[in-house]
Design a protein around this nucleic acid. Structure first.
Length: 792
DNA sequence: TTTCAAGCCGTTTTT
DNA sequence: CGGCTTGAAA
């Protein structure tokens, strides 16, 4: 097993690759090949949607290693999301048979976190510093503001939060922010106060991770030189999403010898509103003297009509680096456009159309409904539920954001770092232990008087409040003592029990799922320990050919998160919980129609895509169009992203009227529709609906209507047969119910949507189940009557 | 401490 | 319209 340590692994070509390098290269088109085999110089790759961007990235890394140009240790790959990092790592893992562990792959935040953990002293942070997520940050800000005398009407915590974050995104400390008026001045003052509080409590927010790491590299020359000489090749994915600070950080890290390979698409820049700066791409080109700007314009995803639509649309933007997608696939289907009278009609048309598609054999998960804003989902969900079509909505609460999980983590955080007032206030009286607001006010006063954390201030408390607080301290101390020698999962289990969290949620009538999530947290800790490689011997972590990593081994075992290996399991787990909030989607697994915002769809692809609500004011959104011209361009890029998600079929819809915020609004059809050549479109008329003049004038030619396929009689017969099929299916499934269902089983109900079985009773035709539906609460259902569908 | 009702707000969102 | 927060009352 052991390989002599003095032979550089990266020179042993035969061992390294599962697939011969030539095979990897031969399947690339000429644009991709050029990019992959570029000499050691800064490069900017303009990677269009569906152009094989990730493939170029991974093949380039593999190629560099194979050529002996760089050791895995000399590679740094930066992504924007954890998902992207994971995908890179997995795909690299399939190309290379050496461990990918030595390669630093991660998000900007993850890697900054790692550096700060390693050099916490140099960075001026306490060893066990905690990371505040967005909601932690907000509560920290609220707490800070309580101690200051300000006009609460004028200074909203949310606004201050945005102010602080956007300052940090631009790399600005309080003293560096431009002060042009009194209002601004106050905000800066509050920013400073917040900064002091964070430092005192030993916590950092997301922006701080980057900013502090930036400052660390900037002011610490030996460290900067160390990393500059280590990372010879730096890869940046989704470059158009980087903000000013990330760009500055990158420049520091690259130094004069590093080679940056930046991949991005200015046409898919849709996060300007949160600080992303597309200008970074042209800045990069200029400042790094990029010799090779390579455009990947060959698209492997969509049919011609779809790409033509996308190209035509995006050509209306003035600020572009410029590129045009092309494909070898045929034109494919025309893009279908539907105008509805109301949002309800739009939804019911959508559902009818989806039924047809499913009948034609399309799987549900190949169908996506995209919309500009989340409120639009409700009408469509309602229609889907009514039709008994399983669906999945992306977005919403993620695992580590759930209140019960955050509570449990707060206990762990307080055990780690007793200065963490955010964690303290969260749990000091949860579950309730007779510590009211009054006591906490007194405690906060004491804390500011003695300049210490609230936890430490308990020692100074006198009177009756101190009894309960004293008991709390005893409990935390006991926890610290007990878990000291426990494994991470055991510690988590101990804490959720002894804190009383489990007992509390068991008492609550709606607490079943929360108890489950707490147990799930223990499981998450086990997975974390296993995946991160804690408990293995040190040699397994260092860069040697790991005998256990063989081509036949499962991917999961090969994937590790390089971020956290230097931390204790607990610190690593808590970082992980803050930096990777968990899955953003509802229960996976089941074949379901996908609903999401256009933003959430970026990077995904579907055979069939519906883009709903193409109306002025909604898409493009009114708030974006009024503010700046670039706002409209970003909306257009958003539309471009939406269109390019579709592989084979694309539907666009809009309505004359829509219920929004409690009132009916009448919108014009989106300008984006007009920017797509009519020759690519096919207009569909509402079924059984008298065609108004308005409809005529706004949708174009009568000859464009698809009378054939969407004629009334045909659709109706389809509807009937679909309904019968669904009934049959459901009936069959419920007959199998006696044996089929068990507690904890996820189920789907035509009326109530998805839910989980939490109780069973009776048998045979008497059998009843209690189901907690995600959207409709708790229900008892007779299995003989209710058509429940098991979801695996 | 809990519960209920009035009030408020409403684009997109990862780390 | 509807979800969530906040404030008042029991």
């Amino acid at each position: 097993m052991p390989v002599p340590g003095n032979i550089p692994i990266y020179n042993r070509k035969l061992i390294i690759f599962d697939v011969a390098m030539s095979d990897l290269l031969i399947n690339l088109n000429s644009e991709q090949l050029t990019a992959v085999t570029l000499p050691d110089e800064p490069a900017l790759i303009l990677a269009g949607a569906g152009s094989g961007k990730t493939r170029v990235l991974t093949t380039r890394i593999a190629w560099l290693i194979e050529q002996g140009k760089v050791s895995p240790m000399g590679i740094l790959a930066l992504t924007f999301t954890n998902k992207a990092a994971k995908e890179l790592q997995i795909r690299l893992g399939t190309m290379l048979s050496i461990s990918t562990r030595a390669i630093w792959i991660g998000t900007f935040h993850g890697l900054c976190n790692r550096m700060l953990r390693t050099h916490f002293r140099d960075a001026g942070l306490p060893e066990g510093f905690q990371i505040l997520d967005k909601s932690d940050q907000l509560s920290a800000i609220k707490r800070m503001m309580k101690g200051v005398n300000i006009d609460e009407e004028k200074y909203l915590p949310k606004n201050l939060q945005n102010f602080i974050n956007s300052a940090k995104e631009q790399g600005l400390r309080p003293n560096e922010v431009d002060v042009n008026n009194a209002f601004n001045k106050k905000l800066v003052e509050l920013y400073l106060r917040y900064q002091d509080q964070c430092l005192r409590e030993g916590v950092v927010d997301f922006g701080e991770l980057l900013l502090r790491c930036f400052e660390l590299l900037k002011h610490n020359e030996p460290l900067r030189i160390h990393y500059q000489s280590r990372f010879r090749h730096i890869f940046v994915d989704e470059f158009q999403d980087t903000n000013k600070l990330q760009y500055a950080w990158l420049k520091l890290l690259v130094g004069s010898r590093g080679v940056v390979f930046a991949v991005g698409d200015d046409d898919q820049s849709i996060y300007g509103f949160r600080g992303a700066n597309v200008g970074n791409m042209s800045d990069f080109e200029r400042e790094f003297c990029v010799q090779h700007l390579i455009k990947l314009e060959k698209n492997y995803r969509s049919h011609g009509n779809i790409l033509d639509a996308a190209n035509a649309l995006i050509s209306n933007n003035a600020n572009r680096l410029g590129k045009n997608l092309r494909t070898d696939a045929g034109h494919g289907e025309p893009i279908r456009v539907f105008e509805a009278l109301t949002d309800l009609q739009e939804a019911s048309w959508l559902v009818d159309e989806i039924k047809l598609l499913i009948d034609q054999g399309l799987s549900r998960q190949e169908i996506a409904i995209l919309y500009r804003s989340n409120v639009q989902s409700r009408v469509m969900e309602h229609a889907l539920v009514g039709a008994g079509i399983p669906y999945r909505v992306y977005g919403g609460l993620r695992f580590f954001e759930r209140q019960e999980v955050k509570h449990a983590l707060a206990y762990l955080r307080l055990i780690q770092n007793q200065n963490d007032d955010t964690a303290f206030t969260r749990i000091v009286n949860f579950p309730t232990r007779g510590i009211g607001l009054r006591s906490l006010e007194l405690l906060a006063d004491a804390a500011s008087l003695y300049q210490c954390s609230m936890y430490a201030a308990i020692a100074y408390m006198k009177g009756k409040a101190s009894t309960n607080l004293g008991a709390f301290v005893k409990m935390i101390e006991k926890m610290c003592f007990e878990i000291e020698n426990m494994t991470l999962p055991d510690a988590v289990r101990y804490v959720i029990e002894s804190s009383g969290l489990i007992a509390h949620y068991q008492m609550e009538k709606e607490g079943h799922e929360r108890v489950e999530n707490l147990h799930e947290l223990v499981h998450a800790a086990m997975v974390f320990v296993a995946e991160e490689g804690y408990g293995r011997d040190e040699s397994a972590r260092s860069f040697v050919l790991d005998a256990r990593v063989t081509p036949g081994m499962s991917l999961v075992e090969r994937v590790t998160d390089a971020d956290d290996v230097d931390m204790t399991p607990m610190a690593g787990f808590l970082s992980h919980a803050s930096l990777e909030a968990g899955d953003n989607q509802a229960e996976a697994g089941q074949d379901a129609v996908q609903l999401m915002t256009v933003h959430a769809s970026k990077g995904l692809e579907f055979s069939t895509v519906f883009i709903a609500g193409l109306e002025e004011g909604l898409f493009p959104h009114e708030n974006s169009t009024s503010e700046s011209p670039d706002g409209l361009e970003e909306e257009r890029r958003l539309m471009y992203v939406a269109i390019t998600r579709a592989k084979a079929r694309l539907y666009l819809s809009f309505t004359q009227s829509r219920m929004l915020h409690g009132q009916t609004r009448f919108n014009l059809k989106s300008r984006f529709l007009k920017e797509i050549p009519e020759t690519l479109l096919k207009f569909i008329m509402p079924r059984g609906q008298a065609v108004s003049h308005r409809f005529f004038s706004s949708t174009g030619n009568r000859s464009d209507w698809d009378r054939d396929r969407f004629s009334r009689s045909k659709v109706l017969s389809h509807e009937v047969s679909t309904a019968m099929k669904i009934d049959q299916n459901l009936a069959e499934r419920s007959r199998a119910a006696d044996t089929g269902f068990k507690i904890g089983q996820s189920v789907f109900h035509a009326k109530f949507g998805q839910g989980k079985i939490i109780a069973l009773e009776g048998s045979g035709s008497e059998a009843r189940v209690q189901v907690r539906f995600y959207r409709h609460g708790m229900k008892w259902l007779a299995l003989a009557v209710a058509k429940l569908q098991a979801i695996d």
